[in-house]
Structures are given as structure tokens and as C-alpha cells.
Design a protein around this nucleic acid. Structure first.
Lengths: 241, 241
DNA sequence: CGCTGGATTGACTCGGATCAAGTCGAGTGG
DNA sequence: CCACTCGACTTGATCCGAGTCAATCCAGCG
């Protein structure tokens, strides 16, 4: 019975058996949700912390004119902000992308947990720093990368994140994201995204079809994207308590 | 002798006299820096937490092709991420925009402080949630707003943030940002930014000249921007410990 | 077997980038 | 006090990447 949340945190800080057990206890009774189900909406009062144990979710905002911007993807093991409960209302929504299994941790439990087990706190903070780095990378992509670079960059990110948590070993990944959702992530239209995909396919860098991302030429994809994985912070600081 | 850092945190959580004094002690010996001075660069190993007590700073990234993306502005009272020390290297740089007065707090001191004074921790976390909300707003702007909307949105944000911390009371603000810096914040060229500014001026919504932002018609500017200030989280959760 | 929601392609338009001159204001030195 | 310089701001002309609109195409499915 693996718990992807715990597995992910273990990659950020060593957890004692007690700490793992405490986390397991708090995420022992997750709930399944269908695809495209809002876990929480912009304007809602935040409740417990969400932890995605299986499936994909995304953060997004809807603009006054009705268009959507996807802000981040949550993969198995990812969670929403752990201090979310301090705010009066959400500034964005979180929705499942695929059918997903999601645990919730009450704020009081979370606080108690982190007070008692500093290792868990540390691991959660590292996760949060990575999420922030990812947002900065998205801002950078949107602002200063051409569309083909942007697409390539997102594919690099999603593939590496998936590999980091053991979702795949081969140069291929099951990507449950429609072209219109990808377009809403990258600030472009579905039509243009489709053409860019065609170009990437033609260049021999990668292929995305039928929900399957295949990295054909990693070096080329990385070069197109101008991708530097440092923002995913795989190498963490060593020797610091 | 006001301390903008403490003033800002007091807006997020009530601080006891002891807590204020502890914060004052840790930020008692700030250093002045000239404008355009890198406090820390992408790739550097993070050190202490930076706290901007006076002046403006920004976070930014430089892309392989040499172009720059500004990621956020730090105004007086703002600080960098308080867990920054957990990472092996910075994923972006932080630079002063104007001459600035900056204090640094060592990680050990910060940890001790937050362990002893939960109110400080809470206030810092609220500040961080606002920073994250701001990044999400930037992603949304870059992805789904036209350039004039984007510019108007940033001006709304900067003006409101400045007013929230008491930098101004009137509908005017000293904005020490060059057009090329604004362009690098908004993912556009300086030339185009200039034209957009002209259009905003012509529409009677706002004027920016000689480092001075004047909001001529707040309602119109907000309408152009499609601005919703909820992401700045001024109304915080009440009745929660 | 027709329906439906993605994916794909074509034709046309337009917002913003690019390239290239200026202009303006604050220093600076003669 | 004025010529010179330098950085930042403006403006015009042109081009191209990406949006828009409108047909298909296709696979999965009731």
C-alpha cells in the first residue's frame, strides 16, 4: 500500500518511521472524485489541506471574460498550500483533471503534526518552495518564451516531475491533458497549440497523441525549451538541519 | 523609528510587544545598498532571509537568450521566502531597484523566533500566501490578458500594495520603475509598453511620467484591468487561532 | 450507426515585435 | 552658461506570430 504523498516527502527530508506512520494515519481515509470535479472554488473559504494521492488535478482561474488560465498541475503526491487555512477566501480554484483520490487533513491536525515532527514540516516547506519555483518558471515562460519554446518547456517539466515521483521510467508518459487544457496553461489558443504540437512532432523532438507523451529526442526538446531543471530543486541542501 | 517589516506583519496578525521587540532586534542593523545591486543571484547558495526595510527590489530571471523576466516586486516591508535556506541553490535572482535598506536574518534566528512566537510565524505565512497569490495573478495576466489590460492590472496591484503599507494616501504613487523594467515584468517590449501607456493616458484612466503614477479614474482603470483585489487578501480570516 | 467531444487544417486578420529615427531631461565639463 | 553626452522615452513603418472563424476529421460510445 504505497502512499505517494509520503513517498514524495521522503525525497525532500528523511522521515522517521513514526513520522511516516503519522502521515499515513492522517491520509488513511481518502475520497475518490470524478474527473473535472472542483475540490474548492475561487471565493470559497478554505478548509482542510488537500493531498492528491492518485490522479491529476490543477489550479486555475476564470477571468471576467470567461477565459481560463491553468496555474499549476498537481500530480500524485502533491498537495495544496499547507497554510491555506489562514486566508479568508481562495484566490483560485482547484479541480481534478482525471478521476482522483484525494485526502484531506484538517488544519489542527496538520499543525499538531508539524509541531511534533519537524522533519515533516521541512519536507512540506521544500515541496512548497518547488511549487513557487515552478510558478516563477511559468511566469518566465509566458513572458519571454515563444510558443514552441513554451510548449517544449511545459513538456519537459511535466515529464521530469512525473519521473521524479516514479510515475514513469521510460521516455514516455501518460498525459491526461487535452489540447485545450494545455492551451489554457500556456496562454495560447487550442488551434495554435495544435500547430505547435505538429511542429514539435515534425522536428522529431516529441509526440503527444492519444494521451501519451513520447520524448523522442530529449536533448533536442531541452534545447528547444531552453530548459534548466534547477527550479525543480532535485538536489537539496545537504548538511543543514 | 518605524520598521516597515513589523508594520506590515502587524497587518496580518496581532503581535505582542515582545514579538515586535524580537523582530526589531533582528532587523536592527540593516545595510544600505545602491540601486541595481544583486542581493543574490540565480545559482547562488541561499543564505539568510532578506527583508527590505526601505526602497524597492525585484525578483528576476535571465533567459539563455539574454532576455529578462521580472517575477515580482518587493516593496518596503517585503521579504524573500523564509524557508529559502532549505534549498541548495536559488532559482532566480533578487536585485534592488532603487537604493535600498535591507536587513538579513539568519536562518537559525528565524527558526528560533518562529518557534518561540507563533504570531510571527502566522504573519509571515500570510505574507507568503499573498506573494503566491500575486504570482498566480501574474501568470493569469500574462496568459489571458491583452497588453493594455496587463499594464492596467499591474498598476492596480502596485498602487494598492503601496497604499496597503501606507506608502501613499492620495491617488498617486512614486513608481521608481523604468518602462523597460515594466516591459520585462509584463512580457512585452519597451516600445509597445510605451504605446500602451499612451493609450491609458489618452483614455483618462492613468498617467505615468517622471516616476510618478497618477490614477486619474480608478473605476475606469479597474474596469480595463478586470482587476479583483481578492488575491491580495486584505480581509483575512477572523476567529482562527 | 449516428453522436459527440477532441484534434486537425485552411484562410484571413490583427496585436505586438522589430527596426530605425528622433526627442527630451539631467548631468558634466569647458 | 552652453555644448556634449547618455539614458530613457516617443514615434513611425513594416513584418510576422498567433488569434479568429469555419470546416472537416476521427475515435470512442450509447
Amino acid at each position: 500500500m504505497s502512499n505517494r504523498f509520503i513517498d514524495k516527502l521522503k525525497g525532500f527530508a528523511s522521515l522517521t518511521a513514526t513520522e511516516s506512520a503519522a502521515l499515513a494515519a492522517l491520509t488513511a481515509t481518502p475520497r475518490p472524485y470524478p474527473a473535472k470535479h472542483d475540490l474548492i472554488r475561487e471565493g470559497d473559504r478554505p478548509g482542510p489541506v488537500f493531498v492528491v494521492l492518485d490522479g491529476w488535478a490543477c489550479r486555475y482561474k476564470i477571468l471576467p471574460n470567461g477565459s481560463r488560465q491553468v496555474l499549476a498541475y498537481l500530480m500524485p503526491g502533491d498537495s495544496c498550500d499547507l497554510h491555506i487555512g489562514l486566508l479568508a477566501e481562495m484566490d483560485h480554484s482547484i479541480q481534478t483533471v482525471t478521476p482522483a483520490v484525494v485526502a484531506t487533513i484538517e488544519r489542527a491536525d496538520m499543525d499538531a503534526l508539524m509541531g511534533r515532527h519537524p522533519g515533516i514540516g521541512k519536507a512540506m516547506y521544500v515541496g512548497q518552495l518547488i511549487d513557487e519555483g515552478t510558478m516563477r518558471a511559468w511566469i518566465t515562460s509566458m513572458g519571454r518564451r515563444a510558443s514552441i519554446e513554451r510548449v517544449a518547456h511545459l513538456m519537459c517539466e511535466l515529464y521530469l516531475r512525473a519521473r521524479n515521483i516514479g510515475l514513469t521510467l521510460e521516455p514516455r508518459l501518460a498525459l491526461p491533458l487535452s489540447q485545450s487544457m494545455l492551451a489554457d496553461s500556456l496562454g495560447m489558443t487550442p488551434v495554435h497549440l495544435n500547430r505547435v504540437m505538429k511542429e514539435l512532432r515534425g522536428s522529431g523532438a516529441m509526440t503527444l497523441q492519444r494521451g501519451s507523451l513520447i520524448i523522442e529526442d530529449p536533448a533536442r526538446l531541452i534545447r528547444i525549451a531552453g530548459f534548466d531543471e534547477n527550479y525543480l530543486h532535485r538536489r537539496l541542501r545537504t548538511g543543514v538541519r
